[in-house]
């Protein structure tokens, strides 16, 4: 199956390895992955900040860059949720129902499990981990089971749930800089809950959450690492 890779800006700029691992995973799953090098961003940062006029040309560019008929797969639920649920509002005049982009776009784990029906990537990743439900994946895309199904089949990985797995990490884009106290406080409690469970890793579908938690963890020298699910699924083979 041919798929187009969309690389969220965090991954493009800060964690390129995760994009490489996404390709590795998709190829193992039998996909032929193409990457349009013109791509930039889905437009979400400006939209969330209230700058719809600034967002619109970037979102339009996204639609142009991904106008091929293949599935679009992204290692991140936040961008997928944004394109799926908010482009209609951004382009009220454009008949989005005629445009299949929203329907063709998938987050990596939901693509693997729901489209390709794969829940075992043959990965091994020794250690204990908790899964953090990124808000974009969980509430914008309704992704709850796919990452857990895939992680459960990772050899050597013990998945331990926390009570607050669905509670936001506190990042929220500009929120993290506009209200740093609240944002940091949320990260603190998220990390403390993971610490209480004694896990070595916090795994998620979205690097935006992980970047935020990692910033708190590193500052406080806490013995927990963050790991993107694509990196976990690409491990050990």
């Amino acid at each position: 199956m041919k798929v187009q890779l969309f690389v969220p800006c965090f991954i493009d700029q800060i964690y390129p390895q995760t994009a490489l691992n996404t390709i590795k995973v998709l190829e193992k799953a039998g996909c032929e992955v193409s990457y349009n090098p013109n791509q930039t961003c889905c437009g979400q940062p400006a939209y969330n900040a209230g700058y719809w006029d600034e967002c619109r040309p970037v979102a339009r560019k996204f639609l142009d860059d991904f106008n091929a008929p293949e599935y679009i797969v992204a290692p991140g639920g936040s961008c997928v949720g944004f394109v799926r649920n908010h482009y209609d509002k951004l382009f009220p005049d454009k008949n989005m129902s005629q445009n299949t982009t929203q329907k063709r776009m998938y987050e990596l784990t939901e693509f693997l499990t729901e489209i390709l029906h794969i829940d075992n990537m043959g990965a091994s990743f020794p250690g204990t981990a908790t899964y953090h439900d990124a808000c974009g994946a969980l509430r914008e895309c309704g992704i709850k089971a796919p990452p857990r199904a895939l992680l459960t089949n990772v050899q050597g990985l013990e998945l331990i749930e926390t009570d607050d797995c669905e509670v936001c990490c506190g990042f929220g884009g500009t929120f993290a800089v506009k209200y740093e106290f609240i944002s940091s406080g949320m990260a603190e409690q998220k990390v403390q809950h993971a610490q209480k469970k004694g896990v070595e890793y916090i795994i998620s579908t979205d690097h935006s959450c992980l970047l935020h938690l990692d910033g708190y963890i590193k500052k406080h020298l806490i013995p927990i690492k963050t790991a993107h699910i694509a990196d976990v699924l690409a491990s050990g083979w």
Binding site: N48, G50, C135, R139, E140, E166, V167, C168, C169, G170, F171, G172, G173, T174, F175, A176, K178, Y179, I182, S183, M186
Partner: peptide, 9 residues
Amino acid sequence: SFASSLCGA
């Protein structure tokens, strides 16, 4: 309105 991470809970 900006004091929210937009988590959607």
